[in-house]
Amino acid sequence: MNVFRFAGDMTHLISILVLLLKIYTTKSCSGISLKTQELYAVVFVTRYLDLVTDFISVYNTVMKVVFISSSLAIVWCIRRHKVVRRSYDKELDTFRHWLLVGACAVLALVVHEKFSFQEVCWAFSIYLEAVAILPQLVLLQRSGNVDNLTGQYVFFLGAYRAFYILNWIYRYYSEQHFTRWISCVSGIVQTALYADFFYYYFISWKNNSKLQLPA
């Protein structure tokens, strides 16, 4: 465990806490893409299949349980909670995210480290995580105004993978045979997708103005 990875995990945890805070305090999910939350639930379930088979550390196990349970809880809230579900932007959140699932599944069947069920699922989850934010970014551009908590949620979600890239660079130089191209390439693509969001987020922060994404 190195400081970059720990910072990345904490940033990821903060993004989830910010989202839960928004939904819990405002009892609203306006501006939140249910499709992105569903994709993240799939990402965590397919990536942490080894949750019950391999024990790595208490930290690892606890974080996996937190990520799986929080993502499922958020999807449940937006779908089923009698108050929250009313504020879901159903007509704006129209990204065909199952296409992303299909494309990542095909890619995982072609590009993986080992052809085993767990490895293919792992590669699938890495690819899917890279594009999972797309429905959310599209929704933000369509809805125009971004409320603070939603903006912070997306910001932390993007920042966490950037810390992971530093972690991979660090591990590449500090461990002999650490070469994991699937995660690295996918992580760079994932962070790049946030580039324009980060730009507008920084501008709005600098001008102390409301975050506006060009439609």
Binding site: F67, W122, Y164, H177, F178, R180, S183
Partner: peptide, 10 residues
């Protein structure tokens, strides 16, 4: 040599 696999990452 225990190769710390990436699977120890979240």
């Amino acid at each position: 040599l225990l190769e710390e696999s990436i699977k120890d990452e979240l």
